[in-house]
Simulated scan of single mutants.
Amino acid sequence: MTNSVDTSHVPERNIGIGELARRAGCKPETVRYYESIGLVSDATRTEGGQRRYGEEAVRRLTFIRHARDFGFSVEAVRELLAMSDQPDMPCQEVDAIAKHHLEEVESRLQRLSALRDELKRMVSQCAGGKVESCRIIEVLSDHQLCISDQAHGGAHDLG
């Protein structure tokens, strides 16, 4: 009779950081960053100190990357991950986070639209002469010449 240990309940962790990053569509530095802020669980280490991950890390990192691609903040992703770890809970909180994010996106789109319209107007009014009579320089120097306050209010926060 052989003496064996049942490891069927232990998830296999044989994916290196490079492979994890490749499968999730990011760089190893991104994996390390998400690990450092607690979004991805610390990897197990080989005797040589190499990180090893399992399939759950691939799923989790893919979720994080996709949520970030949608523009969710790191804190919102943290909340969504916590909720996804509780599959039996109602999804009202998830819905609330997504609705709040949608409102932020809609607001940003309105500001970007006003910014685009103001830039088009400035460019169309430029006669192409000398800088001293340039309409673009004139408008940039005086906010009162803008059609919309949204055109310059918070535009730097759109990124």
Score class of each variant (00 low, 15 high):
D6Q: 04
D6I: 11
T7P: 06
T7L: 15
T7H: 15
T7G: 08
S8H: 13
S8A: 14
H9V: 09
V10H: 08
V10T: 13
P11V: 10
E12P: 06
R13N: 12
R13W: 08
R13G: 06
N14L: 11
I15T: 07
I15M: 12
I15Q: 03
I15N: 14
I15D: 11
G16F: 01
G16Y: 09
G16W: 03
G16N: 14
I17T: 12
I17A: 04
I17L: 10
E19Q: 14
E19M: 00
L20P: 00
L20I: 04
L20V: 06
L20Y: 00
A21W: 01
A21L: 02
A21C: 09
A21T: 04
R22D: 14
R22Y: 08
R22V: 05
R22F: 09
R23L: 15
R23Q: 15
A24I: 06
A24K: 08
A24D: 03
G25F: 00
G25N: 00
G25V: 05
G25I: 02
K27F: 03
K27M: 05
P28E: 11
E29L: 05
E29T: 04
T30F: 03
T30S: 13
V31G: 09
V31F: 07
R32L: 00
R32S: 08
Y33D: 04
Y33F: 15
Y34T: 06
E35M: 01
E35C: 05
S36T: 08
S36G: 05
S36W: 00
S36P: 03
S36E: 05
I37S: 02
G38H: 09
G38R: 01
G38E: 02
L39W: 04
L39V: 11
V40Y: 02
V40I: 13
V40F: 01
S41W: 05
S41T: 12
S41P: 13
S41E: 13
A43D: 01
A43V: 00
A43I: 04
T44V: 14
T44L: 14
R45H: 12
R45P: 10
R45T: 06
R45Q: 12
R45N: 09
T46M: 13
E47L: 15
E47G: 15
E47M: 03
G48I: 02
G48D: 03
G49H: 12
G49I: 01
Q50S: 13
Q50E: 11
R51P: 08
R51W: 06
R51I: 10
R51K: 15
R51T: 09
R51Y: 10
R52Q: 14
R52A: 12
Y53D: 08
G54N: 12
G54F: 11
E55S: 13
E55H: 01
E56V: 03
E56F: 12
A57P: 02
A57F: 01
A57L: 07
V58D: 00
V58A: 12
V58T: 06
R59N: 12
R59H: 13
R60D: 05
R60C: 10
R60S: 00
L61V: 08
T62C: 12
T62N: 06
T62I: 02
T62Y: 05
